[in-house]
Write a protein that binds this DNA or RNA. Structure first.
Lengths: 125, 125
DNA sequence: ATACCGCTTAGAGTGCGCTATAATGCAAGG
DNA sequence: CCTTGCATTATAGCGCACTCTAAGCGGTAT
C-alpha cells in the first residue's frame, strides 16, 4: 500500500513540513515520486519512520538518527546499527532512572505541601 | 552556609551563565549580594535550585518553572504549587510509558539484527 | 478559460535554552 | 601603584528541531 504525504503525516504524527525536512536533511532516504512529482510513501517507509520516531521521542538527536537511517539498505552495517541501538538502550535506562529520582523528590514535596495544608486546617477548625 | 556563584555552579551542575540567566529571567528569586555586588547563594537557594533542576531535567519548560518558582515565598500558593507538581507527575508517568514502549521496539529490532547475523554465520560456517 | 487545490522547492524565520562577548569594576597581592 | 583575577552588566550569538512563506506547477471543477 502507498501513501501520500498527507496520509503519512496523519499515520506518523509528523507534520508535512517535518517529513520534507527529514528527507532534505537525509534523515530518511529519498522517497519515491508519482508522475506529478508528488511523494509516495510505501508501507516500509511508514514502518521505518515509525521506528525512527520511537528513538527520536526517547531523545536520540537528529544527527545520530541520520547516521543510523543512512545505513538502512546495507546489510553489512547491521553490527553497527545494533551497537547504536544498544547505546541508545543505555540512554533510555539512564532516563528511566532520572525520572524515578525526580518522582521521589516531587512526591516528597507534594507530601510537605499536604502536611502544611493539614496543619493549617487544624489550627483553624 | 553561603556560596559563591562558582561554588553554586559546581554544586548544582548549572553553568555560571545559566545561574545569571535564571535570575535575570526570574526563574529564581533575586539572590543576595555581598559588599562588592557579588552573588551570595544560601543553603536554601541551593536546595531550591536542586529541586527546580529535578523538574527541569524531567521536561518541565522554563516558563512553567518560572511560574512555580515565583510562588516560592507565598504560603497561600501551596495548593497551586501542589497542583502543578501533580500535573508534572502525570507527565513523568507518560514519559516512563514512552520509554518502555520505545524499549520494546528497540529490543525487537536488536533481536532481528542478531537473528540475521546468526543466519549469516550458519551459511558461512 | 480561469479559478482552485494540493503539491513542489529554496530559503527565511521561530522558540527554546542556554552560551559567549565586550566593557567595566573592585579589591587583594607583589 | 599596578597587575591579576574574579566578579558585574547588557547584549549578541548559537544549536537544535522544526515551521512557515513565497513562488510556481499540474490536474480537476465550473
Amino acid at each position: 500500500m502507498n501513501y501520500s504525504i498527507n496520509e503519512t503525516s496523519q499515520l506518523t504524527g509528523l507534520s508535512k513540513y517535518t517529513l520534507r525536512y527529514y528527507e532534505k536533511e537525509k534523515v530518511i532516504p529519498e522517497v519515491k515520486r508519482d508522475s506529478r512529482g508528488y511523494r509516495v510513501y510505501t508501507e516500509q517507509d511508514i514502518e521505518w519512520l515509525t521506528f525512527l520516531l520511537n528513538i527520536r521521542q526517547t531523545g536520540m538527536p537528529i544527527s545520530k538518527i541520520k547516521q543510523f537511517s543512512q545505513m538502512r539498505f546495507k546489510t553489512e552495517t547491521i553490527p553497527a546499527r545494533r551497537q547504536m541501538l544498544l547505546e541508545h538502550k543505555e540512554s533510555i535506562i539512564k532516563q528511566e532512572e532520572r525520572l524515578k529520582k525526580s518522582m521521589v523528590a516531587i512526591d516528597a514535596k507534594i507530601k510537605r505541601y499536604e502536611h502544611y495544608v493539614q496543619l493549617q486546617a487544624e489550627q483553624n477548625p
